[in-house]
Each structure stands twice: as C-alpha cells, then as structure tokens.
Amino acid sequence: MSDFLTPTFVISVLAAAVAAGTAILFACLGELITERAGVLNLGIEGIMLMGALAGAGGCIWSGSAWVGAGAALLAGAAMAAIHALLCVGLRANQVVSGLALTIFGTGLSAFLGRDIVGMPPPSSFRRIDIPFLAEIPILGRILFQQSALVYVSIALVVFLWWYIFRTRAGLRLRAIGERPEAADAMGVDVARLRALYVVMGGALAGLGGAALSLGTNPGWTEGMTAGRGWIAVALVIFAAWNPARAAAGAYLFGGVEAGQFRLQTAGVDLSPFFLSMLPYLFTILVLVLSTREATRRALGAPAALGRAYMREDRG
C-alpha cells in the first residue's frame, strides 16, 4: 500500500483525472448551455456516441484528428437539431424526446460504425507540453502536459463563464431559461435562441464523444461512452449551472475513473466489476447531495427548464 500515496502517484492520478474528465466536461458544458436556455436534453448519451463515432470515422477517413473533431461537432449538432425541432419547434415532451435521442443514437452509431469497430485511428490528440507552464511544479504536470482537446476544454470553461455571466448574449440566454415570456416581451426571439443553444450544446456533447474516441480510449466500439453522457447530465445539477463548477465536477469523475484503473493495477483486492460500479454509484451520491444543497440554498434550475414556450398558447 505504501506506494499509493506518494506525491508522484497522486499527481499522476490528478493528471489522469483531468484527461479522463475532459470528455464528460465537454458533454456537461453542452448540457449546461442547453439547460440554461430552458431545454432539458436527455439525449446527451446518444449524441456523445454519435460524436465518438464521427470523431473516429472522420479521423480514419482524413487522417487528421482535427477533422475528426470537426465531424464530431457536426454530428452532435445534427443529432441535437432533431431535439430542437421536436421540443422547441413542435413542443414535444422533452423527457421522451431526449430518451428517444439516446436510443436512436445508440442504434444508429452501432449500425453506421460496424465497419470500423476496433480500428485504431491513424492520429489522435496527443500530449502537448505548453512551454514554461508545463514546468510549473505539480500544476504544470496536472494541467499543462495534456492534449490539445484538454486545453480547448479549459479555454471553453473560461469562455462560457464569461459569456453566460458577462455578455449581453449571455443575459439573453439566462433570460430565456428563466422567464421566456419576459424575454419575448423585450424583443428576444425565444424559439430561435433556444434552438440555437440546443444545437450548440449538442455540438459540444459530440466533441465530448470525440474526446474519448480520439483521446483517452482511441478508436470506436459500440456503446463506448458507457453512461458518461448521463453522468454529464447529472453533473449539471452539481455544477449549479455554472461552467467553473462543471469543470470541478468533471475532473472529480475523471479522478474516479482514473483512480479505478490505478487501484486495479495496484492490485487492490476488489473485483473489477465492483470497481467499475464506482462512477455510477458516485453519480447517485453526488446527485442526491447536490439536489439537497440546491433545495437548501434555493439555487435552483433555470425556472423555465423543461417548459415549452409558445406565445399565443391559450387554453
């Protein structure tokens, strides 16, 4: 047990946590802006799968990981567009539409990806040390000896925080999720913006899928997200709809995932099946705790979350 808590071990676990948490982070940020706009998207798991497939496929086809990432963005956006059409355009039940999206994405990705299962992508997002920053003790190893996608995700967290809380567009985003009637009366085009954020959120979730298939778990296999999309949805509550907290939550899960492998290799006497349960059990725990905290401190979800808005809807 003694080689467990050495500084090197802890730092390597933390660095692995950031790497492993990045896929969840992208998906969580995607769901976060979707929910901020007042739409619940339970299709993140299906979108991530399509993103993972598109990422691996795009990379195999073109040879470039960046092309793969672009394909993942597009695939995620296309999937989310279905949700936007149904829930924003046609005001369908958001819960059921999201579930349908997950079922559809699972099936479609398995069908379309049948020929590239297990095929290693010719390129992937590899570690890039950032000059100087990577030299910082401890922090440099954790944050600045990572892949380009990790840097993109960190930049995105900062950007989204600024965007949501400090810009006019962000104010409109928050308004359509809190009180669409008020935003509408002030001349904000609620339906158009909601659809836009659902699609953008989907694109980010798709990129989250590519962070797996071109990053931590290179290549495509059926169902490879293994519930990470759902964990991302749960994390939005933990994050209290704040991108900075989303990053903290995602790295926590990355840590659970990374720690689980390290415990296994360190020869801990626990069945791997039980170790694999940890992220899921941990999600439930986090969800229960953050729901309680949210209720206690009255930091709620966007008030109009899940509520369709139609201006002339009467009776």
Binding site: A169, L171, R174, A175, E178, E181, A182
Partner: peptide
C-alpha cells in the same frame, strides 16, 4: 415581464436594442 433573479439594470439591458458584447 421581469426576470426575477436579475437586477433592475439587467432587466433593462435585456430590452436594449444596442449591439455590442
């Protein structure tokens, strides 16, 4: 037609037709 968690000023900005970030 006010957004409750927002401040008065933020509610006014919401209706401004000014472009800018």
């Amino acid at each position: 037609m006010l957004v409750e968690p927002f401040s008065v000023a933020e509610n006014v900005v919401l209706g401004e037709r000014r472009s800018g970030v």
